[in-house]
Amino acid sequence: MEIRVLQYFLTVVREESINRAAEVLHITQPTLSRQLSQLEEEVGVRLFHRGARKITLTNEGLLLKRRAGEILSLVDKTEKELMEREELVDGKIVIGCGELAAMQLLPDLFQSFSQKHPLVSYDLFTANADLVKEQMEKGLVDIGVLLEPVDMEKFEFLRLDQKERWVVLMRPDDPLAVKEAVTAGDLEGLPVILPRRLNVQNELAHWFGDSFPNLHVLFTSNLSTNSAVMVRKGLAYSLSIEGSVSFWDKNEVVYRPLCPELTAGSVLAWKKGQPFSLAATKFIRHIKDTYAF
């Protein structure tokens, strides 16, 4: 039983006429009639009641109609899946990211994408949002996970639901460690480490309010991991995003949230009009499909 003949059969069923079905299929009426007769011989039953004006299905024909529809749907689905795999997509996708809680969303994306394209690999470039965005604009990074505030005029992006909470890093034996949260006044006159990004500093300055001029900014840093090294040695307190907290040794560095709470959003972004590799193009499509973009 050939797929082509099943398609002929369903066309005749739909048109209720061999003549009309032959016109739709662009074959002659005798050729179609012969194919249907051979199909009936092959299955060993009559499939049609041939009337003067139209043909109708026998009970056996009704069963074949249902099964033929299922078979052709499965064939179509299989062909689409094979086409999606194309010629086995390979290559490397460069992902720029900060030490953010939003990074927890990426492993599921990587896993589901790798099931379809197992030859693709990933390069994780860790930096603050300004540097990641700069690399994206140069075409050196394909996709970025960026901490807001950030100018997205040149980028297509998906705003992630997960919020990034600002915290203060300190030694576990520090006097502030006994507090449940840290206020702006608690940090006045104390050595602190601020993020290097100026627009983030502005956000923090707004939170500190009148206390900001009284801060003793000993360091600025673009990564909280390096800040934590300074904190561990007791040199300063670090204002940081909570995202990388799980990687720190709690016996050496602890954190307390700001009070009142300060949070920031993050985005998953890629440059508009960028000529991406096939692997990156498909990964962006995967992101859009996953999040119904």
Rank of each mutant, 00 (worst) to 15 (best):
V141M: 07
A177S: 08
E164M: 04
L198T: 07
E252W: 10
V178C: 12
E15N: 11
C97D: 00
R285M: 02
P118L: 06
V145A: 03
V43I: 10
P118H: 14
N251Q: 09
L169N: 01
P107A: 13
V145F: 01
V200E: 01
G185W: 12
S114L: 01
E86R: 14
V145S: 00
L74I: 11
G139K: 10
P195I: 01
P195E: 00
Y122D: 01
V43N: 06
Q38R: 12
G209T: 14
K250L: 05
L88F: 07
V168C: 13
E99T: 03
D108V: 08
Y8A: 00
R50V: 05
P213G: 15
L25I: 04
G209N: 12
Q111W: 08
Q29Y: 06
L278P: 03
V43Y: 03
G273E: 14
E40R: 02
D173S: 14
R66M: 15
V12W: 01
C97N: 01
I241H: 00
S211H: 15
A181F: 06
L63K: 07
P257H: 09
G69S: 09
S240R: 02
P172V: 13
E87A: 14
D161Y: 09
N202L: 11
G265D: 09
G96L: 03
I27R: 02
E252H: 08
D123Q: 03
I27A: 10
F113I: 05
S33H: 06
E153M: 11
N199K: 10
G69V: 06
D151Y: 12
R50L: 02
H216K: 06
A280R: 03
R67Y: 13
D289G: 09
M230K: 10
L223T: 10
Q104E: 05
Q111H: 10
A280V: 05
S33Q: 09
L235W: 07
R20F: 08
D289W: 08
K154Q: 15
K77C: 14
A264G: 05
A205T: 15
T183H: 11
E2R: 08
M230I: 11
R66D: 15
D108N: 11
H216L: 09
E188L: 15
A52I: 04
L223Q: 15
E23W: 02
F276W: 07
S112I: 02
N226Q: 06
E81A: 15
D108A: 12
I55C: 02
R53Y: 10
V94P: 01
T126N: 05
T126Q: 05
A228Q: 06
A22K: 12
A22N: 09
E16T: 06
E40C: 03
V43W: 06
D76P: 06
Y8M: 02
E41T: 11
T220V: 13
E180V: 08
A279L: 04
V13H: 02
K250C: 08
L215Y: 05
L39V: 05
L194D: 00
R159N: 12
Q29A: 13
L176C: 11
D174N: 07
G69N: 14
E188W: 06
G69P: 09
R46K: 07
R165L: 04
F247E: 08
E41A: 04
S211T: 15
L223A: 08
